[in-house]
Design a protein around this nucleic acid. Sequence first.
DNA 1: CGGTATCCCAGGCGATACTG
DNA 2: CAGTATCGCCTGGGATACCG
Lengths: 125, 125
Amino acid sequence: MKCEKAQKCNLENIVDIIGSKWNLFIIWHLRTKKLRFTELQNRMCGINSKTITRHLRDLEGFMIIDRRVYPEVPPRVEYSLTERGTALLPIIEAMLEWGGQYLNAKPGESHDVEPAKETVCEMDP
Amino acid sequence: MKCEKAQKCNLENIVDIIGSKWNLFIIWHLRTKKLRFTELQNRMCGINSKTITRHLRDLEGFMIIDRRVYPEVPPRVEYSLTERGTALLPIIEAMLEWGGQYLNAKPGESHDVEPAKETVCEMDP
DNA sequence: CGGTATCCCAGGCGATACTG
DNA sequence: CAGTATCGCCTGGGATACCG
């Protein structure tokens, strides 16, 4: 975690963000439209609320997502991508493309079901 | 970790590879030339041998790096990128570019030293 | 609805020591 | 040199319960 002799690695900072499965999923799910807390949670394979909250806060801190609270009853909170977050989409797409080219062709070993398309845990339409 | 209702997420498989700080570092350090075990270890901020070995094996399993053993005394093992691994470089470069654009400009909070350039833990020339 | 608060556990990672 | 073995910490994340 620490590069004592050198300055903090650029790549390391980025991996802290992109390297998390959950962060990537959140960003990806927000690519088309803003979503509410529960909508996100349901789309992400039932991730528990503590975990998703933590990652949402992280992403908000990095100014990758925008959190908008509507003072209503019942409460409504909507998350959306910022410009910074949107700028990450090409990278995620590149990752998916890479995965489609190489992982689907020869899955290595951990391949139990048929290859996915460009989808990420699409569960509920 | 498990998408019970959907097929295994493509993105999740990829994040297992790209999402690891160590894997990214290894790939990045191998971008220009093949390196020996110790060379890699020294460049990576003194990562301990157990950890690096594990990640090297993982990457080898995914056919992202190539491990070549020379039957000599003392032993020599060289690691290099495969085509698959090389195909990841544009993604890492995109990540670095994104980080350069956004993280260096406004670091958020975890920013203790001056921004890094396109470097990754460059310690010993 | 959109979270916090607790508890708990697997495993990622460092430190250290040893080996062919 | 290139690892393996062992120990032990600490965090990420699941389960569950509760709250404004």
